[in-house]
Design a binder for these strands. Structure first.
Ligand SMILES: [Mn+2]
Ligand SMILES: [Mn+2]
Ligand SMILES: [Mn+2]
Ligand SMILES: [Mn+2]
Lengths: 218, 218
DNA sequence: TTATTTTGTTAGAATAATCTAACATTGTAG
DNA sequence: CTACAATGTTAGATTATTCTAACAAAATAA
């Protein structure tokens, strides 16, 4: 049995893992706003449960079992967010905090029903992929808008670090998933981009913003 | 701040309260499947928080504040059940356990939205009244079918002790809220009732069942 | 390479929620 | 009005989760 607290640690490990699947105690501590000694002791406990590989002073890694359990929590989170947006009429900036709680409901039936009512969606409202019932995540590759070049025409496909404030900012700028953006020029000084999209012929996006927008070509 | 655990105690107190608003430690202990000493210590804690009146060896009573907080938890529970049945297609026998968990979500927006999507329902899928946002409960008075007489024609309006098993039994017998039942005779030996309803001209309902069906006349 | 900063661990304590064992009070049946 | 049963409380312990203070290792800078 995995407790609510343990689910939150697993999810954070999953979301923070780099290419090598590694996470530092310090990052995890910051992500969860829980002090490092507490994180260390929880990692020992999760290692006991065969959910995490833990060795002193080494980076943390989820085991296969841990990855699967983590993905299932992420699945519950993302399905919930999608349901809140598509079926209940919430804005994409409102759903994360609610999903943070609903994700801990223990009822396969409940999430299966959500999945079905949504028509088995592949992506959540922020463009993140939804793991399947076996915890398998279909990998989707996006580029950061900040890595694109002048003249490129791209489509906003996902957002990262989805704070409510950032999403409200995008709402004000009328940027949402699917928005087609043309990069008119890039300011070398601060790497801000002058872009055009929708009915905005010349809008400027700061580098901070461009780093958080994931795009696809074509 | 009221913890998930405290919410469960408050809800149980609310649901168990008799006419005088009193609950015994023992009943509460059984309801929650938590040992009496644990209940006693929790009652002291809730008394500290001014949610419960507690005196040694006296029956437990919710304070006004406690009643309101309890009613708000009951509201979340019943709204959730109604949503699961009306908007998600669950059966009335499937929703209690899920609502037991969802009721602890802390988000006024979430439950306000549910309320709105349901059109501000007054009753849950088991016929129980839904407290308003101020924790006020509109009192509805039903009679037990077991207190009715031969010849009476009544409408099933609510069910009590809504275990999944009991509700599945009602599903098999094709009894639901709104079913009109005519009492043909009452067996004095075991107080079972021979009734007719729907397309069942003569069905027998045991006293146990009749005690759990709440009905209205007219 | 030595000093300093950053990261991570250990030790010890706190809070919340729970339990069992033992004791006390209340209620009930003769 | 006792005796027994039922109910309720106290004491002490346990588990889960968290913290601060102190120490240790690793990484970085000088
Ligand atoms: Mn989210
Ligand atoms: Mn969470
Ligand atoms: Mn219920
Ligand atoms: Mn509950």
């Amino acid at each position: 049995m995995i407790s609510l607290t343990e689910e939150n640690y697993l999810k954070a490990l999953f979301n923070l893992a780099n290419n090598a699947g590694e996470v530092n105690v310090n990052e995890l501590s910051k992500q969860l706003a829980i002090k490092m000694p507490t994180v260390t002791s929880m990692m020992k406990k999760l290692a006991e449960k065969k959910l995490v590989y833990y060795e002193s002073y080494k980076p943390l890694r989820l085991t296969e079992k841990g990855k699967k359990e983590a993905a299932l929590v992420v699945r519950k989170h993302r399905l919930t967010e999608m349901y809140l947006v598509d079926k209940m009429g919430f804005g994409w900036e409102e759903v994360h905090d609610i999903a943070e709680q609903v994700e801990h409901v223990r009822s396969a039936q409940f999430f299966d029903k959500i999945d079905e009512l949504l028509g088995f969606p592949k992506l959540d409202p922020h463009g993140a992929p939804i793991p399947d019932k076996n915890g398998k995540l279909a990998w989707v590759s996006y580029d950061k808008l900040s890595n694109c070049h002048a003249g490129d025409i791209v489509k906003v496909s996902a957002v990262i670090h989805t704070s409510s404030e950032f999403l409200k900012f995008l709402n004000n700028r009328e940027i949402s998933l699917g928005t087609k953006i043309k990069i008119k020029s890039i300011e070398p000084f601060d790497r801000s981009m002058v872009v055009s999209y929708g009915n905005r012929p010349a809008d400027t996006l700061s580098h901070i913003v461009c780093e958080r927008l994931l795009v696809t070509f074509g």
